[in-house]
Design a protein around this nucleic acid. Structure first.
Length: 581
DNA sequence: GCCGTTTTCGGCCCGACTGTTTTCAGTCG
């Protein structure tokens, strides 16, 4: 039983209970447990009932269910629920404008239990006669059913960012627009983005909303009001625009940045202090308004330090802020080195000189050139380095080191492949000559968990390996990467002092935020690297930093945010130990 | 079903928008 399975199980229960019409607070308890388990890093299957009770949101009833499921792989409660409510009804909840009440209505009055049946009923005009529905509801549901496939897509951060920036600029230029910012999951730097949120202030809100909803890319207007409008573009992505007067802009930005769970927790926190919080500001018990023109003021009013957007996921940040123990998370300006870069000695597009110049210009103090070796699955076989080519590359690197002396420190590195049997594709004698060695998996990621964990472990334990690159080798938005036993990996990396990478390529972001946080808690040192193959991709470091901030990492956790002397000394000690063996 | 800086009982976030309504329920974020 994985945490993921358990989270899905509780979510399933919550959905079925909603359709059944159970007490909403009971449902809330299951939903909250599902959400919090999803991001928990401890393996719940290994905890006793007593330990489970210590977790937030887990009481007697849920603890018993977790134990039952982990021991038997089944849950009597769910089995009974599924006999009462057809489980396929859960699919209906994904249709826009269909929630638990309507799903129950369709089922009880028309016997509908599947999406196909719902579509057929909508097409034949059977929905419009149901109580509370009419022709418009029916047609919205039909549109929703047809939009569903592309609606669910999630976008890599840069793609979402590009679209959002374009809209931000366009709307900002409208007359009377005083503020406009990106919010939502993009501002929190979630690993992929589902839809876009823009927040603003404008003198004439109606005119701005009219402009927003009448743009040529708009395929559907999902809702249209003075405070909030929502559209779906022809490309399928949804954009919301939220407006409030400028004296309330801070409250709005805070609210729309989310996450939902963070906001709910913050509102509960406010209530305990006699304040009701919404996107319009605070209302005190004697109905006085407290307005926040700036976002910081929302937190200040609650006696809290500012919580960075990336941390707002209800993963303990409000409690930590209240105790004044919120970590000072790293920022992009803390990153002074990039330890994973590819040149045209392998499949990178640029020369050593160009990379060094670009690094210098971007303010880096140190880089490591880490080209691929002979087994990497590059598209061109000539883009892989054999051991015999290393002397020639070494002399090129020495030349550029001399050229950049005093301006930029350049490490002679390499990225070797961890072969399917756990061996590396370069022998240790070859590895010993490099300043820094990354080991990564690129092939046969579908091996069983035991096997692929052992495969990674052999590299982690190799004293010549300094960093494990993109540990899971996942490809966003769809692939989860290797099925690794992460606790084992983190323990081994901690014991051997092997660094785990947060790869900043927006299609990797690997380790992800949750794993990176757990790794750091386990005493593992991390590195945030670009893995750039082009000069432009060197700028991806900001996405890796976003992930690191979501993982609550400070400068101390990240080797390339430490002083360069410290990094170099760390590597020297490591090399000395390796050669001494 | 969970939880306690008013509570072991009685709370549990809040507002915008839509459609079907004559004042509100459902959905969404």
């Amino acid at each position: 039983m994985s945490n993921q399975e358990l989270s899905q199980l509780f979510n399933r229960i919550a959905n079925l209970m909603e359709i059944k019409g159970e007490n909403r607070f009971k449902i809330l308890a299951y939903q909250r447990a599902s959400d919090s388990i999803k991001t928990m890093t401890e393996d719940l299957a290994k905890l006793s009932q007593e330990d489970l009770l210590q977790l937030p949101g887990i009481g007697q009833a849920l603890a018993e269910k977790i134990v039952e499921f982990s021991q038997t792989g089944r849950l009597k409660f769910l089995t009974k629920l599924e006999e009462e409510v057809p489980p396929t009804l859960i699919d209906l909840l994904n249709v826009p404008d269909v929630g638990p009440k309507k799903a129950a209505l369709f089922w009880k009055s028309l016997g509908i239990t599947t999406l196909e049946q719902l579509e057929a009923a909508a097409k034949s005009g059977k929905l419009r006669d149901l109580p509370g529905l009419g022709e418009k509801s029916e047609s919205r549901i039909l549109t929703g059913l047809q939009a569903q496939q592309y609606n669910r897509k999630r976008y890599p951060i840069p793609e979402a960012e590009g679209i959002a920036q374009d809209w931000k600029e366009r709307i900002s230029k409208q007359k009377g627009v005083t503020r406009l910012e990106l919010a939502g999951s993009l501002r929190r730097m979630r690993q992929t983005i589902g839809d876009l949120d823009l927040v603003g202030s404008a003198d004439d809100q109606a005119a701005v909303m009219e402009f927003f909803t009448s743009q040529p890319e708009v395929a559907d207007i999902l809702s249209r009001g003075d405070w909030k409008s929502s559209v779906r573009l022809k490309s399928g992505i949804q954009i919301q625009l939220w407006l409030q007067p400028k004296e309330k802009f801070g409250s709005l930005l805070q609210f729309v940045t989310g996450s939902k769970d963070h906001n709910v927790r913050l509102r509960e926190f406010a209530l305990k202090r006699g304040l009701s919080l919404s996107e319009r500001g605070f209302v005190t018990k004697d109905l006085k308004e407290i307005l926040c023109a700036e976002e910081e003021l929302v937190y200040t009013a609650l006696g809290l330090p500012f919580i960075p957007p990336e941390m707002r996921e209800d993963r303990g940040e409000i409690e930590a802020a209240a105790k004044n123990s919120l970590p000072h998370v790293i920022g992009i300006s803390d990153i002074n080195s990039d330890l994973h870069l590819h040149s045209n000695w392998s499949d990178g597009k640029n020369s050593l000189e160009d990379i060094a110049e670009a690094a210098l210009e971007s303010g880096l103090k140190l880089i490591a050139l880490t080209d691929h070796t002979i087994s990497a699955p590059t598209s061109d076989p000539d883009d892989r380095l054999a051991v015999e080519q290393i002397p020639a590359r070494n002399s090129s690197i020495r030349k550029i080191q001399t050229q950049m002396a005093g301006k930029l420190i350049i490490l002679n590195g390499i990225e070797v492949d961890i072969l399917p049997d756990g061996r590396l594709d370069f022998p240790d004698e070859a590895l010993a000559q490099f300043d820094l060695v990354i080991a990564s998996i690129h092939l046969e990621m579908n091996q069983p968990a035991d096997q692929i964990t052992q495969r990674l472990l052999s590299a982690i334990r190799n004293p010549f390996i300094d960093i494990i690159g993109h540990p899971s080798c996942r490809e966003l938005p769809n692939s989860n990467g290797a099925d690794l036993d992460w606790e084992v990996i983190f323990n081994a990396a901690g014991e051997n002092g092997t660094i785990l990478e947060i790869n900043s390529n927006p299609l990797h972001l690997d380790l992800d935020d949750i794993r990176a946080r757990r790794a750091a808690e386990s005493g593992v040192l991390l590195a945030v690297n670009s893995d750039a193959h082009t000069l432009q991709a060197m700028g991806n470091l900001k996405y890796g930093v976003g992930t690191a901030r979501r993982a609550w990492l400070t400068r101390e956790h990240v080797i390339n945010a430490r002083k360069t002397e410290e990094l170099i000394n760390w590597l020297k000690r490591r090399k000395a130990t390796a050669r001494g063996r």
